[in-house]
Write a protein that binds this DNA or RNA. Sequence first.
DNA 1: GAGGATAAGTCAGCCTTGTTGACATTCCAA
DNA 2: TTGGAATGTCAACAAGGCTGACTTATCCTC
Lengths: 168, 168
Amino acid sequence: MPDNPISQSGQSLLFLTDEQLRKGIEAMFFAYRGFTADPDRILADMEYGRAHHRAIHFIHRSPGTTVNNLLSILGVTKQSLNRVLRTLIEDGLVESRVGKEDKRERHLHLTQKGAELERSLSDAQRDRMRAAYRAAGPIAVAGFRQVLEAMMDQDLRRHYDTLKDRGA
Amino acid sequence: MPDNPISQSGQSLLFLTDEQLRKGIEAMFFAYRGFTADPDRILADMEYGRAHHRAIHFIHRSPGTTVNNLLSILGVTKQSLNRVLRTLIEDGLVESRVGKEDKRERHLHLTQKGAELERSLSDAQRDRMRAAYRAAGPIAVAGFRQVLEAMMDQDLRRHYDTLKDRGA
DNA sequence: GAGGATAAGTCAGCCTTGTTGACATTCCAA
DNA sequence: TTGGAATGTCAACAAGGCTGACTTATCCTC
């Protein structure tokens, strides 16, 4: 974390007032609605919901991930995930392969069809993010990421970092 | 929006790569879980959920707001809001007053008891935000807010700004 | 004053997505 | 061979979204 001249001075801790914090809370609330709006619109036309989007996203992100790993990333019960996963497998969007080393495990992959849906969902979501990033500029984006990362629970942060490392 | 030397240069638009955007998307996902975790824990012990929290928050924020106004802030149907509001009124957390000028309207206020719950919920949520803000510093916080604001839909942004103006 | 518009509330029924709890199956490893 | 781990499944339930239809009360306008 970079030192900060303002907070270091002991003065001007105004960004920590309850008023500032409340604005941040409301910004999170309204922004998250925008964040999910575009994929939700696409999914509404199908028989899928946000839970399907999440599963598809993380299977795409970590091809071959096990059900257990996905469970701990998503933070839901296996029954809840299983319902979603079952429909995705039935509909031919996700493939479940028995593990080679440990045959109890199932490794999850997107099919061609699944990858196409993933693409259309993430395109929609990225378009909005891209517009926001462009409007705010790279310095703001860095701050955005810093604050979000500091808001995560430790175990969520671990998942986030693991995913991050694989990526860029 | 301040000019930005990096993006202005036409070079180094690296912060707009799909990889960067995906990281931002995942940061939003994991951070939002943290964002709601603390109030959720408090609410789980009561017969309330996140929907009650949202209603309480915005009634606190805009005392005397009408049902219609609350509906458009929350972006849900009146049936959905009504279910929540009814329990809050029955339990004596919210008071509904007939409008003076227009008697069709109901103006919503938190009772003493409602204000107490609001306080405990927002204390919990603010604690986490404060820690994140402090860890990231004021410049990061400014960027955080900038990006979130740029992610909002126009009508959400309007509500956000209206609330913001009343506050600080 | 009548009629249409508006604000709020309500009933019924549906869907998604979360939860518990119980239990079966399969397979690895001690 | 037996215990535990990973997975899958059934049943039941709850929160909180949704639509549609309808009532009541209150404006507001012609």
